[in-house]
Design a protein around this nucleic acid. Structure first.
Lengths: 342, 342
DNA sequence: AATCGCCTTCAAACCGCTTTGGATGGCGCA
DNA sequence: TGCGCCATCCAAAGCGGTTTGAAGGCGATT
């Protein structure tokens, strides 16, 4: 059942039927109702492909997922972010199209998405320092919103981010207030923007309290269980081991816990641990009482909001760059306590 | 730059240019090369929306992700599966469109996808027992492949699955061979098809060795860290606690480990644990030597293969249902050992 | 009665490609 | 020389909608 069939069945022109269904004013209300009823009765759904060609809009948003050719980590945060963004798209009748491409193909992919007209805009994931994608997308002329920010980028652009610096600064202060003086940082890869900011927060807090930065207490690696374990184990083996850890993610945190317990230490008593909790649905930080003390910010909510921002940008291309900074909350769990007396 | 412009620039008809670019035989090789060169020079990319309308194909595959209105768990396995499937789509110039919808909208979503022509086929995730989606999709006439199977479905349909029953049967036998007689099953939700099959494998192995099934040693819940912890703790509190656990996932396994260590027991010595390892990129089971003994099967590879199967089905609608059963391998890690003598 | 203007409706162009059904011209062959 | 065939190219008709420009009908105005 297509428009032509439906309109001839109704004894109307396709023009009128189309207008009736799309809520245009220049159609008699009685006619509109007749059309609506017939559309429902015949289960008429306009063909998306035709709409897209006719309107010149793709009614779709792209997410490009680069697969690193070296270490093929699929960001675990990704699923929840996508779920959040997807909710927004569904509500607004947009499609979400995912492109999984080798990372050396990312630029081509963006250009292709634009020139082939597959999408009306894109969301940029996991920005790095001086991320080239921002200039690229600006150049290409594809509306975009960055989930995160890219330190070093001069051009204005739209982004939504968590205040990572502040979150880790507060967390560090919290540990300092508990009397911890040697705090190990188990960070993500520090070419990632969020990791840079978290480190800055950590360093700032220590510096403000006049505590010297000790490089062996700062590690940076993939946010996996194994990497977290390894980093924590290495630090615990130092002659002056840390009494607390500040950890980049829930998953890294499980690795840290493994290292701590393997050593016969008790988390929350011998060693304090604070993680950043993305509030992943499959990786809840405990139930009523959190396992880990954590800086928490829902990445799913971030997905919803980022997508909304992008749709706004697509609808009003002239509003200019939008920005939004979310604050993480500090959740007190069982993994922190006063520094043990030496 | 569109086809008309390009063709007039070349002094050729759109027909010929289109044919030249699409490799049709009725065009002079010299002409073809001239066209190809011009297309590259002017950076011509045919408009996807137009191609789709003209050919009647969407060149896209749908993945419907139902968001349970009650417990909003985003399947953690999902990201890797998607990454795998996405690789296949990219290679074949297909788009992957994700629909995140409330689970009571799933049926409507499939019908809409078909009638609006957004996709050429779909992949069905997380099949349940007697899954209604199979009959629905057959009825709707949308090509589909199920990742997993649906016990209780009489109709033939295409699927790709891991031999879950066999994997858990072997794992159970492995534990029995180590002398474990009381083995706790920390299963996923048992309305999920894979969980049913795993349980069957577990039960079969015990039964064949003449060991009675003890219901308190079988649990079924969401595959989260917390649920795993809770299940293991409950079983360890039994008057006759298990000496080994068979666990549905890496994440549940971390919870089990927490419960084990909280009790002052050592994994691999006091308690043996076998998990199922989906080989998630962000959740590797250790590095050279695995943390957990595991039944392993890459869900990412499953994504690749399932997508290939679907594209095959779309290209040749008449080949009929395709099936493929993958075997999981048993990986020996540090988490298993002989049953402690009573 | 003629004109104006509004409310409805419609025919046709258009979006940018594919594909059908010719046309054209050169060449081999009788 | 004439004919048929093949290689090559093209005009035009879709695909299924949206949108522009125009027109018919009718009450109100003059």
């Amino acid at each position: 059942m297509n428009l032509k069939e439906l309109s001839s069945k109704l004894g109307l022109s396709p023009t009128t039927v189309s207008r009736a269904l799309n809520g245009y004013p220049e159609v008699n209300e009685a006619t509109r109702e007749r059309v609506m009823a017939a559309a429902k009765r015949h289960n008429y759904h306009p063909n998306t492909r035709a709409i897209r060609l006719a309107t010149g809009r793709a009614m779709a948003v792209g997410h490009v997922i680069p697969i690193a050719t070296r270490h093929e980590i699929v960001n675990p945060v990704f699923a929840d972010f996508i779920a959040g963004a997807g909710e927004t798209y569904s509500r607004n009748d947009y499609d979400m199209v995912l492109s999984v491409v080798p990372d050396d193909q990312e630029e081509n992919t963006y250009r292709g998405l634009k020139s082939k007209g597959n999408v009306d805009g894109v969301i940029v994931h996991a920005p790095k320092m001086n991320d080239p994608r921002i200039a690229l997308l600006r150049d290409v002329g594809l509306p975009f919103v960055v989930h995160g920010r890219a330190t070093g980028t001069a051009l204005p652009y739209s982004w939504l981010d968590v205040n990572n610096r502040r979150a880790f600064q507060r967390a560090t202060e919290f540990l300092l207030d508990l009397g911890h003086l040697r705090i190990g940082l188990v960070n993500g890869l520090e070419f990632m923007d969020f990791a840079i900011r978290r480190r800055t927060g950590y360093v700032d807090a220590l510096t403000q309290r006049g505590i010297a930065i000790d490089p062996p207490l700062m590690s940076s690696d993939e946010m996996t269980e194994v990497a977290g374990y390894r980093a924590a184990r290495t630090m615990l083996n130092l002659s002056a081991p840390p009494t607390a850890f500040l950890v980049a993610s829930m998953i890294s945190g499980m690795g840290v816990r493994r290292a701590v317990e393997e050593r016969g230490l008790a988390m929350g008593r011998d060693i304090s641990v604070i993680i950043h909790d993305d509030d992943l649905s499959y990786m809840k930080n405990g139930e009523d009482l959190p396992i880990f003390t954590a800086t928490r910010s829902s990445v799913r909510e971030a997905g919803r909001l980022t997508a909304e921002m992008l749709l706004e940008l697509i609808a009003h291309p002239d509003i200019g760059p939008q920005n939004r900074l979310l604050e993480a909350e500090l959740i007190i769990g069982q993994s922190t306590g006063p520094a043990p007396r030496p």
